[in-house]
Amino acid sequence: MYWTIHLEGGPRRVNHAAVAVGDHIYSFGGYCTGENYRRQRPIDVHVLNTVNYRWTAVPIIRPDDPQSCCVPYQRYGHTAVAYGDKIFIWGGRNDEAACNILFCFDTKTLRWSCPKVHGAIPGARDGHSACVIGHSMYIFGGFEEYIDRFSQDVHALDLEKMEWRYVITQGNPPSYRDFHSASAIGTRMYIFGGRGDIHGPYHSQEEVYSNEIVYLETLTSTWHCPRTTGYIPLGRRSHSAFVYKNRLYIFGGYNGICDKHFNDLYCFVPATNHWIQVKTQGKRPCKRRRQSCCVVGDRVFLFGGTSPYLGVQPVINEEISEEMLFEGFDSKLMDHNDLHVLDFAPSLRTLCLQVVIARHLDENWLPEDIWWDIRAMTTNNNISRPLNNTG
């Protein structure tokens, strides 16, 4: 398992939502220190080509375009799931309000739509989780806007019938929380981490961070909390969770009680309920939270997020979002525009290229296709605005 790529210059985004469709990763929204999140504007969409590691920005829909009414506003704390060639965006908020409208992005046409839904539509929220099991998108938890409390509810949207339903569950559900992760393995939805409160659904600033694994068996709508063994990670929120070969991986995140960011990697094996702390090769990403991770083939693509700023505080404008103030802007957090790639099964070709790059070997004698690969692996992107412009 090898960290093979580290490139700068991609979208500088925190608390965004991303999902892979084919060889491309689509990233939606998020925030960046200094931008104005009270004003509504169309959400930005960035696309990563995982073959050449190049980012592109999807053109923003003009206000006079008939499609403009179906474009979600710029937001953070939302979710994105893929179903076929379509990506469904739900929830999230800006600094004024949260949202519960369903949006659909067609990866073939790069066009937006607002599917007509019916049933028991969940209340607006952010910091929830979502995953697809079968033909349904399941969402769990989050912080509900209108009742001003954490959630521990499960809702499901049938993506064929476009019908919402409230899922009545059995067993002991995970505690009220937001900024956890939900991962689909077979018919199970695995919940890990997140931020809760000792007073249950209400936010009193007395936070709790669970490190239990809890899963919902969707066939029976029953919660299970298996007894786990091994190197169990410390409780955290705003981490990344991804599934590779039916194993659940957790990267990074933040624990507010000890005020600690992480860049560790853990693996949970559902077959044995065992945790493993994973040791990787190569230079791993710095400690961070609210990044995105997407699996394409045998590789994991990690990008964005925020972490403690280790240098001189960057210059920003006066329009600092409420989210960043709440998250501790005074603690000097730095938003990232970088891309890292973790390869679970690096080929001999990839490992040889790593040696050429690391040792600065003469490339002139290399075949053109290998030279092209080296350029792709070492050339930064350039779609971010400068840090003092916080793009």
Rank of each mutant, 00 (worst) to 15 (best):
R236M: 07
R236W: 00
Y244H: 12
I198Q: 12
I250M: 04
M189K: 04
Y266E: 01
R188Y: 09
H261T: 06
Y215G: 04
S210A: 11
P233N: 05
E206A: 11
I232S: 08
G193F: 05
G230S: 09
N211K: 05
S238W: 01
M189T: 07
G171K: 04
S175N: 09
P201R: 11
N246V: 05
G256W: 00
C267L: 10
C267I: 09
Y202G: 07
I185H: 00
H261W: 10
R195V: 11
E217L: 06
R195G: 10
G252S: 11
M189V: 14
R237Y: 08
L219W: 02
Y254Q: 03
T218H: 03
T228Y: 09
Y249G: 00
G235C: 12
S183V: 06
G193A: 10
N172C: 10
T229M: 14
F268D: 05
N211A: 07
V269K: 14
I232Y: 07
R247D: 06
F179D: 11
A241R: 02
E212V: 06
C267W: 02
R237S: 14
K260G: 08
G193R: 03
A241K: 08
C258D: 13
Y176H: 12
P233V: 01
H203Y: 14
R195I: 14
V269T: 13
Y190T: 02
Q205N: 14
K260N: 14
Y202L: 09
H224F: 10
H180C: 12
M189G: 03
G253I: 01
A241W: 01
Y249S: 01
N211G: 05
G186H: 12
G193D: 07
H180R: 06
H224P: 01
T228N: 07
A182V: 03
R237K: 12
Y231E: 14
R227I: 13
Y176P: 08
Y190M: 07
K245A: 12
T228C: 15
P233W: 00
H261I: 02
S238H: 07
D178P: 04
L265W: 00
L234Y: 06
N172V: 13
N263Y: 04
T220I: 13
L234F: 05
R236Q: 03
N255T: 06
P226E: 07
P226D: 10
Y202C: 11
R247P: 00
T228V: 15
A184C: 11
G252L: 02
F262A: 00
I191M: 05
T187V: 10
I191V: 15
G171W: 02
F262H: 01
R227N: 14
